[in-house]
C-alpha cells in the first residue's frame, strides 16, 4: 500500500459519496446515467465475489462492501425511489449495455491470466470497469449543461484512475517482479476516456464558468 493507491481509493469513495449525497439531498438524479451505475455495480459484484473466501486485508474488505453498498443505493434511488426515479433522464441515457458487456465478456474469455470461473469474472470486471463510464460521458455530451455535482463526480472518478496509474508506476519502481499488464492496459484505456472531459472541466474551472461540453 502506498500513498497513491490510498489517495485513489479515497477519491473513488468520495466520487460515489458525492453522487449519492447529491441524489439524496436534491431528490434528483438528472444528468446521471443509470446504465453507468448498473455497469459499475456489475463490475463490483463480479470483482469482489471473492469477498467471502479470499481475505486479503480488512482495508480491502471494508472498501469492497462499501463500494457494493453505496452503488446499490444509487441504483436503488434511480430505479425505485418514488421522487428520484421521475427525474431520471431515460430518453437520453440510451447507450446499449450489450455494446460494452459482450466485447468485455468475449475478451475476458480470450485474454486472462488463468482459465477458471473466478479469474475470468475478475478479468471481465477489469475490462468492464475500463468502459463503464461511456454511457455517462455520452449522457453528459447530450445534455451539454453539466451541473456542478455531476461534473465533480466524473472529475473525481477520473482523478481516482490517475492516482492508480501513479500507484502502478510507484510499485513498478519499488517492488521487484511486480507486473500486471492486463490491469495496466485496461487502466490506461480507462483513464484515457476521461482526458477529453478533463480538458473541458479544467477550462471551465480556470475561467470560473459553468461546465459546458461542446457538441
Amino acid at each position: 500500500m502506498n500513498l497513491f493507491r490510498f489517495a485513489g481509493d479515497i477519491l473513488h469513495l468520495l466520487s460515489i459519496l458525492v453522487l449519492l449525497l447529491k441524489i439524496h439531498a436534491t431528490k434528483s438524479c438528472a444528468g446521471i446515467s443509470l446504465k453507468t451505475q448498473e455497469l459499475y455495480l456489475a463490475v463490483f459484484i463480479t470483482r469482489y465475489l471473492d469477498l467471502f473466501w479470499n481475505f486479503h486485508s480488512l482495508y480491502n474488505s471494508v472498501f469492497k462492501v462499501v463500494y457494493i453498498g453505496t452503488t446499490s443505493m444509487i441504483v436503488w434511488y434511480m430505479r425505485r425511489h418514488r421522487n428520484v426515479k421521475l427525474t431520471y433522464d431515460r430518453d437520453h441515457d440510451t447507450f446499449r449495455y450489450l455494446f460494452l458487456v459482450a466485447p468485455c465478456a468475449v475478451l475476458s474469455l480470450l485474454i486472462n491470466a488463468r482459465y477458471n470461473l473466478f479469474e475470468i469474472l475478475w478479468t471481465f470486471s477489469i475490462y468492464l470497469e475500463a468502459v463503464a463510464i461511456l454511457p455517462q460521458l455520452v449522457l453528459l455530451q447530450r445534455t451539454k449543461n453539466v451541473d456542478n455535482l455531476t461534473g465533480n463526480y466524473v472529475f473525481l472518478l477520473g482523478l481516482y484512475r490517475a492516482f492508480y496509474i501513479l500507484n502502478w508506476v510507484y510499485r513498478f519502481a519499488t517492488e521487484p517482479g511486480y507486473s500486471a499488464w492486463l490491469v495496466w492496459i485496461s487502466g490506461l484505456i480507462q483513464t484515457g476516456l476521461y482526458l477529453d472531459f478533463f480538458y473541458y472541466y479544467v477550462q471551465a474551472w480556470k475561467q470560473s464558468k459553468k461546465l459546458q461540453l461542446p457538441s
Binding site: D50, H56, F63, A113, W122, Y164, S179, A180, L182, V183
Partner: peptide, 10 residues
Amino acid sequence: RKELEAKDEL
C-alpha cells in the same frame, strides 16, 4: 507469477 495472485488492489 505475481499477476496470478495480484488481487491486492481494489
